[in-house]
Design a protein around this nucleic acid. Structure first.
Lengths: 145, 145
DNA sequence: CGACCATAGTTGACACTATCAATCAAAAGG
DNA sequence: CCTTTTGATTGATAGTGTCAACTATGGTCG
């Protein structure tokens, strides 16, 4: 096997992870697509979050982000405040409800990761993540997270 | 954070790879979505390919596979022959045109992989693939779909 | 100031991917 | 036969990704 297995492997892995995560999310009684979850977490991690910064961080189209944010806001999970220095922009913050959800989500995500990495020896996950980031950077260079 | 980086890492990686691959495919003048490419390759690799076996191999919904196969056939890339032992099923084989396309695709894919793994030391890719498979197996053990 | 371009965000259109339920025909097994 | 499985298909619907056009504001510079 030279290398072409990578394609299938990647698909298989992400599909497996997404599926597992989605099930966990649903079991927790949360009705939110994965992209929304990721955006919400991104907002929570970044006190200066704007639509643009979230799009950049997630490396997704800003159009997509706009729609996600709209739904997060409609769901009462985030709030938008006027940006103090730029009236085109808005600062995004999780609402109280959003914070509570994030806590739940983190538990679910950790559970999914635990399931997936249960066959890995200590350190192998970190090694895997490092390699994955190295590869992703080779395609779309990113500044530090 | 302890490990939740995995989620973002996986998204970033597959997104980067898909994007890179899609660009390569388009540059090669091929007009075919990635799922179709993967299905076509799967068929080529398996002389006994049926819709079901491809679905199982790719761990995708049969419905999705059916549609992909339909389009591959419409594009003249594969042919369907009656299955000798089961009249519900059909054996799938790449057409001559399909074979030619596959050769092109493999070059494109190898190029994408080369780009992505250029920062990896020898053996690290194999290590990565092994870890990824281990993780995927932990979520969808042997039997899936 | 006013012309001009860049940026933040929004919207519309569309293609691709995933999931689920229902259906049909053929196979398998009493 | 009749019932249950299985391979494949279809329809419906949701989620995701990409591109282009657009609005409004900001920044620059003559």
């Amino acid at each position: 096997m030279s290398t072409p297995a990578l394609s299938d492997t990647l698909h298989r892995l992400t599909h497996a992870y997404k599926q597992r995560l989605r099930i966990g999310i649903r079991n927790a009684g949360i009705d939110l697509p994965i992209t929304h979850v990721r955006a919400l977490k991104g907002i929570a991690r970044n006190p200066e979050a704007t639509a643009g910064s979230i799009a950049a961080r997630m490396q997704r189209d800003k159009a997509q982000i706009t729609r996600v944010l709209k739904e997060l806001e409609e769901g009462g999970l985030i709030t938008r405040q006027a940006h103090p220095a730029d009236r085109r922009s808005q600062l995004l913050r999780p609402s109280r409800k959003g914070d509570i959800l994030i806590a739940k989500l983190q538990a679910v995500e950790q559970e999914a990761i635990d399931t997936m990495t249960r066959q890995l020896k200590p350190g192998e996950l970190q090694r895997f993540i490092a390699l994955a980031n190295l590869m992703a950077d080779s395609v779309t260079p990113s500044e530090g997270d």
